[in-house]
Deep mutational scan, measured.
Amino acid sequence: MKKYKITVYDEKTGEKHTIEIEMSEEELEELAKKLAEKHNVKVRIEKV
């Protein structure tokens, strides 16, 4: 498992949230996809 920083940005409201999380790359990609689809936000992932 690796550490990642996830930034979620909502273009409508301008809200931006960043968290650090430790998980596998596959789980992370699935999480990012679900966030983007369900909440209509942009998701950026960076390795820490």
Rank of each mutant, 00 (worst) to 15 (best):
K38F: 07
A36E: 08
K47R: 13
K33G: 08
H39A: 13
D10Q: 02
K16I: 15
Y4S: 02
L31S: 01
V48F: 00
M1F: 06
E15A: 09
K34F: 08
I45Y: 03
I21K: 04
V43P: 03
A32S: 10
Y4C: 04
T13N: 04
K34D: 07
Y9L: 10
E27C: 05
I21G: 04
E30P: 03
Y9R: 03
E26Y: 11
R44D: 10
M23E: 01
T13G: 03
E20V: 14
L35G: 01
A32H: 07
E25Y: 11
K38A: 09
E26I: 09
T7R: 00
Y9W: 15
V8A: 02
V8F: 14
M23D: 01
E37S: 11
A32K: 12
K34L: 11
K2H: 15
H17G: 03
I19Y: 14
E11D: 08
E20F: 15
K5D: 01
L31F: 13
T13R: 02
E22M: 10
V43C: 04
A36R: 13
I45R: 03
T13I: 02
S24L: 13
K12P: 02
I6S: 00
T18V: 14
T7I: 08
E25S: 08
I21Y: 05
M23K: 01
E22L: 10
E29V: 11
K47T: 15
E20A: 04
E25H: 09
M1T: 15
A32R: 14
I21P: 00
E11Q: 08
K34Y: 10
T7N: 02
E27T: 08
Y9Q: 05
K5T: 09
M1D: 09
K47E: 15
V41A: 08
Y4F: 07
E30K: 12
E20P: 00
E25M: 08
K16D: 05
E37D: 09
K16G: 09
Y9E: 06
K42I: 14
K3D: 02
V43L: 02
K5I: 15
E46K: 05
H39I: 13
K3T: 05
E46M: 01
E46L: 01
E11L: 07
N40W: 05
E30W: 08
K47W: 06
G14M: 04
L31E: 02
K33S: 10
K3N: 05
E15R: 09
K38H: 12
V48A: 06
E15W: 09
E15P: 00
L31K: 02
K47M: 15
E37T: 11
I6K: 00
K16S: 15
R44T: 15
I19W: 15
K12H: 12
E26V: 12
L31G: 01
L28Y: 08
K3S: 03
V8K: 00
K16C: 12
K38W: 07
K34R: 11
T18R: 02
T7E: 06
K12M: 13
V41W: 07
I45M: 03
K3V: 06
E11T: 12
E20N: 06
M1R: 15
I19P: 00
M23C: 13
K16T: 15
I6R: 00
L28V: 15
A36Q: 11
N40G: 14
S24I: 10
T7M: 06
M23Y: 03
K5G: 00
D10W: 07
K38R: 14
L28D: 00
V48C: 05
G14I: 00
Y9C: 07
K12Q: 11
H39T: 11
D10V: 03
G14N: 05
E20D: 05
E46F: 00
K34V: 12
T13V: 02
K42G: 05
K12G: 10
L35C: 09
D10E: 04
M1H: 12
E15Y: 10
K5S: 06
Y9H: 04
E11G: 04
K33V: 10
H39G: 15
K42H: 10
A36D: 05
N40E: 06
A36H: 11
H17N: 06
K16E: 15
K3P: 01
E11H: 05
I19N: 01
L35Q: 01
Y4N: 01
K2C: 10
G14T: 02
E27N: 06
K33A: 10
Y4R: 03
V8E: 03
L35F: 08
K16F: 14
V43K: 01
V43Y: 00
E26K: 09
Y4K: 02
Y4D: 01
I6C: 04
T13A: 03
E26N: 12
E22P: 02
K5E: 06
L35N: 01
I6Q: 00
E26L: 14
E11K: 09
A32D: 03
V48S: 06
E25G: 07
K12F: 13
G14W: 02
T13F: 03
T13H: 03
T13E: 02
E46R: 04
G14E: 02
L31Y: 14
V43A: 05
E15N: 08
Y4I: 07
K3M: 07
E22A: 07
E37A: 08
E46N: 04
H39M: 07
K33L: 10
E25T: 06
E26R: 09
